[in-house]
Amino acid sequence: MNLQIAMLLGQDGMTNGAIYALLALSILLVFTVTRVLFIPQGEFVAFGALTMATLQAGHAPALVWLLALLAVIATIADLLAGRRDTGRYRFGTGQALRLGYPFVLIGLIQVLPLESLPMALQAALTLALVVPLGPLCYRLFYQPIANAPVLILLIVSVALHVAMVGVGLLIFGPEGARTQPFGEGGLELGPITLNAQTLWVLTASLALIVALYLFFERTLYGKALRATAVNRVGARLMGISPVFAGKASFFLAALIGALSGILIAPITTIYFDSGFIISLKGFVGSIIGGLASYPVAALGALLVGLIEAFSAFFASTYKEVIVFTLIIPFLLWRSLTSRHVEEEE
């Protein structure tokens, strides 16, 4: 291996690592706020990538029908819950907007020239299609059992992941897809050429991390989410609705997931079931962060990307095995230092 190859591998590793870091952050966010280990995060990556590809191919994405179906079911569930709690059906503006939204999108998709839209608009449309699935998933699958033990929430996550992979196959078919790159050429830095997509991924990830930081540090909603993560009951007593916190964190997770999918789709061919293994690498990052620390999780995820790239060069058949054994030293260290017996929530 010479310097050139090392640079190339490093660039690959950084690109993937940046994506894993984004996923690690969103996984951590969802876990600390809702105690849900959000395994289906990977499906949002795949859905984002494949929806973008569908749009670029000029087809109407069938995903919009899933969105419409879930919105209808969520509305019915809200109506029934309203009747159970207050004795009458309530249908507010929020419900009306949620119910109308997918049908507006269906109309838009019919009218717009999908194939010839500028890429930024295609990306925006992809996000508009995929991201609302996040809060809808929270409403339908997690909200009814928001106080269940972590273990139950985890099993629900796995069940949802399994179902979403099946739905992905139904909607997108078994073929993989790759999208057009965002830009051509690259940036020459001395002996290294950073290619355009790498730059896009790194800049976008960095921008998103900064935006998240500002959101959590500077805005009231961000602080509300942080408060919920620190003390659920306390935050609730201060008027922060757990339902709001749940939906908001799932919204952010879906946004980050879909965006990661859009970023990664020009680099790797994505299949309906590719998301799982990508999000698991995000999980490895967040486990390295002890499911608590954001900076360590992001660094851990970056490390996962780098080790993956280099092990692909040295021992490509064992690449995945090497990546997943990364959690062992961390778990070992944590096991040896913790001596506390505590109750599971």
């Binding site: 280990l37 972590v150 698991l280 490895v284 959690i327 062992i328 070992l332 944590r334 913790s338 599971e344």
Partner: peptide, 20 residues
């Protein structure tokens, strides 16, 4: 390496084991 930690480390560890 997982059982002395909180209960969700075992399932995550077994996912990694299962895939590997």
């Amino acid at each position: 390496i997982t059982l002395r930690l909180s209960g969700h480390y075992l399932p995550l560890g077994t996912i990694a084991w299962g895939i590997s």
